[in-house]
Simulated scan of single mutants.
Amino acid sequence: MTTHPGWTSWTFDPAMTAALLLAAWAYAHAYRRAARVAPRPPGPSHWIPYAAGLAVLAIALLSPLDPIGEQYLMSAHMVQHVLLADLAPALIVLGLRAPVLPLGLPKAGLRWIAPGGRLGRFIHVATRPWVALPVWALATWGWSIPAVFDAAAANPLLHGVQHATLFYAGLAVWWLIVDPLPSERRKPHPIRLGYLGFTRLVSAAVCLPLTWLGTTLYPRYVEAPRAYGLSAIQDQQIAGAAMCLLEFLIFGLALAVVFLDLLGRDQRLADRTESLFPTPRRST
């Protein structure tokens, strides 16, 4: 009798677990350092997204999504890609935004991330619109080509490369959209929402055909064991619909964040105006 992974079976990967714990430890130190020195210290709106981003990475890489997506269901594999390339990077970058970066870094880290530092120069180039957006589009489209998608699922090394490129392309594009460091080049909100809209169009070019096509495109998943009660075409359509739904929810979340940021900016402007021109009290 053939056994298959259950939805409650998680794997323990020592290297990945150590990397996630190290990322959490480093963030905790940066958060405490920023809280000590920043005029407006970070709060739950910083650490909650970052913690959620690490949790999403754990779900993508340590949950049953990984083995089920490799061997049985294309829908599980596609959901894993959205978590790695979109949701986790967005949450992590939101958690890193100022004042956590740069005030949470030690002096050596500040030198590296400064505009003239090695990492700073790389970030500056990698997050330019003409770099980050095409790279994200190429990663999204390239890894969705049926022959490439199937080959990555069959080869553990190529599968790891696939995950790494999707995650780092996601970090670059969300760094461009959120722009977490204090920067003179920061674009207005409508332009950054335009960047986000471009990424949704790129994703739609993948998820909409998968949702509505009546023929299967991925031979590996046509030949996979039907262990979860789904036919190959149902699995493919669910993969497309799940990808479209997640992308739509992420776009809605980004719109909400921008709206709240605009409200906060208006309130800060009103507070500064009130401090400069206080309203005279009426005599009773």
Rank of each mutant, 00 (worst) to 15 (best):
D261H: 11
A204K: 00
Q234Y: 02
L260V: 04
Q267E: 15
L249H: 06
F198K: 00
L249R: 11
G197N: 08
E223L: 14
R268L: 12
R185I: 14
K187T: 02
V202N: 01
L249V: 13
R268Y: 02
R268E: 15
I233W: 09
S231N: 01
P190F: 06
I177W: 00
P190L: 11
T215G: 07
R220T: 03
A224W: 07
E247F: 04
L181W: 05
Y228I: 08
G229I: 08
Y195A: 05
R185W: 13
R186P: 06
L249K: 07
A242Y: 01
L230G: 09
R200P: 00
V173W: 00
V173R: 00
T215H: 14
L246N: 02
S203M: 14
I233N: 04
L249P: 12
M243R: 05
A241I: 05
P225R: 00
R185V: 15
P180N: 11
A242S: 14
P219S: 06
M243W: 04
L245S: 14
V206D: 01
F251A: 14
A241K: 05
M243E: 12
I238F: 10
D261T: 14
V206E: 04
Q234K: 13
A205W: 07
A270V: 06
Q267G: 10
I233D: 06
P219M: 03
Q236N: 05
S203T: 13
R220N: 09
L263Y: 04
W174A: 03
M243Q: 12
A204E: 08
A242N: 10
L213Y: 11
P225S: 02
A239I: 02
L213N: 15
G229K: 11
L245T: 15
A254Q: 04
A172C: 15
P188G: 03
G264D: 14
L269W: 09
W174C: 07
I250P: 00
A242C: 11
W174R: 04
Y228H: 06
G197A: 11
Q237V: 00
Y221N: 02
F259I: 07
A239C: 02
A270D: 14
V178A: 08
G170I: 06
L176E: 02
L201N: 02
V206M: 03
T216C: 13
D266K: 13
R185E: 13
W174L: 10
G214R: 11
R220Q: 13
L253S: 12
F248G: 09
G170F: 02
L253Q: 12
E247W: 07
I250R: 06
I250V: 12
L255Y: 08
Y195F: 15
L255S: 05
W175P: 05
D235G: 03
P180Y: 10
V178W: 07
P219C: 02
L269M: 13
L176D: 00
D179M: 12
V222D: 11
G229F: 12
R265A: 15
L196E: 10
Y195D: 07
R186M: 03
A232E: 06
L181S: 05
Q237P: 00
P209H: 04
T199M: 06
R265Y: 09
S183C: 06
L176A: 07
S203I: 12
F251H: 11
V222Q: 10
L181I: 11
Y221M: 03
P188I: 01
A172Y: 06
M243K: 10
P225Y: 06
P182F: 06
